[in-house]
Nucleic acid binder design. Structure first.
Lengths: 238, 238
DNA sequence: TATAAAGGTGAATCCGCAC
DNA sequence: AGTGCGGATTCACCTTTAT
């Protein structure tokens, strides 16, 4: 099921402890030099003076609110994955801890083809964080499925290339995640017929892979054009 | 110069803005009932009294206090590297931000030979974080030196094996860092004759490599036996 | 002297049972 | 029922010993 709308509003309509697995790729809200990122897109802030502090409090409140809904929706054995960079991962972790999530692993998605440096004064950014956390004391983990990927115990650094062009045939999204990444996440932490939720669906990779792997899925996207993109992509699966 | 004593006390005696580079491997506070693998056997995580939470009134205040001294000692162009795991990295980052440090990169030290899982309910821990942060607006970075390591722009995921036995000939320390790791850090962020400080010297890798690379060095270690170990190691260099 | 085999090691909040 | 203690098996790589 795909929803068009604000993720918090839509999640409020869903039942307590009805979800097995959540993947979330939230906006990062960078606030550098009057620029902000919304749905992964850099936009100028046109509200006159940029109030960093207000922005900071609002973005953290937003983070708290959607994570709180995720917590309510998750089953006791459920878990959540949240992607980020060093710009937002610390704020996200703090809100998660407040709510009661317990970290399982922090996965490093190591991109095999990172972009070059613009300014030569630091190291190339070649990875993203993905926090994996649980609600209850016991979570589901498919050790066998992960073992079989490389025929050894899976570690927490994953070398996966950035999105391939072939995965973008249904339209463009700025922070589209690779199918291989979602495959691994869904296989690691859900079973067939489990319910998978993505509150920031974007291009739809989460639901696309969930459907392929015979999971039930709920995707929420605020922007019409991305909602339509995800819908087209879903419909390409029989 | 090596000092035996509490790092905060010793740092108080040093001059403002006298240091170019700091590497710090503080307690991670995980010697509290966790389990680890040692010599193929399950054992309690016990790195020593220095790593136990119960030996500190308030671990976050302790973190704040030593970082605050580091900030005072750093030159405007100086930078600091702090290692950690997900157990402490979020607390460290928060205190660093409070003090005014600005993150440059968060390096992932990816170990090529991580220990296996004891419990098959999560991913193998195969890396440590190293936060790299600066004091002022401009920091020193040796782009060329980093480029030359792999003949391409250096990225922020570093594949470096755990400590080799040959590096342990002067004595044992439970959290010794590999020489290759410190080499890269010192080459990336200091010049010859710069002053390098390590407030938690341990086995002495930081000063050992600093000396080899013709940097001046200050190392502080609280425990007599590790202070002596580091001293023996330093004296092995002509 | 090579090469093979055997032995050693590592910054993880787990689970079951006894008391 | 809460607390405390001990356990059986895993991986990649290095080092030492045996052939």
């Amino acid at each position: 099921m795909l929803y068009l709308g604000d993720c918090i509003e839509v999640m409020k309509e869903l039942n307590n402890e009805s979800i097995d697995l959540i993947f979330a790729d939230p906006p990062y809200f960078l606030s550098n030099g009057g620029k902000s990122i919304n749905s992964g897109k850099v936009v100028s802030v046109n509200k006159g003076e940029w109030d960093k502090k207000t922005n900071y409090m609002n973005t953290n409140l937003f983070t708290y609110n959607w994570l709180k809904e995720c917590y309510r929706l998750l089953k006791e054995s459920g878990s959540i994955w949240v992607s980020g960079t060093h710009h937002n991962v610390f704020d996200v972790e703090r809100e998660m801890k407040k709510i009661g999530f317990k970290i399982i692993n922090i996965v490093i998605w190591h991109k095999s083809d990172p972009p070059p440096l613009i300014y030569k004064n630091k190291l190339r950014f070649s990875y993203e964080f993905i926090i994996w956390a649980k609600k209850g004391t016991k979570h589901f983990f498919d050790y066998e499925a992960m073992f079989n990927v490389h025929n050894t115990e899976m570690e927490d650094v994953w070398l996966i290339p950035a999105v391939q062009l072939s995965e973008k045939q249904f339209g463009y999204h700025p922070t589209q995640k690779p199918e291989a990444l979602l495959e691994r996440i869904i296989l690691a932490s859900s079973k067939e017929f489990d319910v998978v939720l993505d509150p920031f669906l974007g291009s739809g990779t989460t639901c696309y892979i969930a459907k392929k792997l015979k999971r039930k899925y709920i995707g929420i996207e605020k922007e019409e054009k991305y909602y339509q993109l995800a819908k087209r992509r879903m419909e390409s699966i029989l």
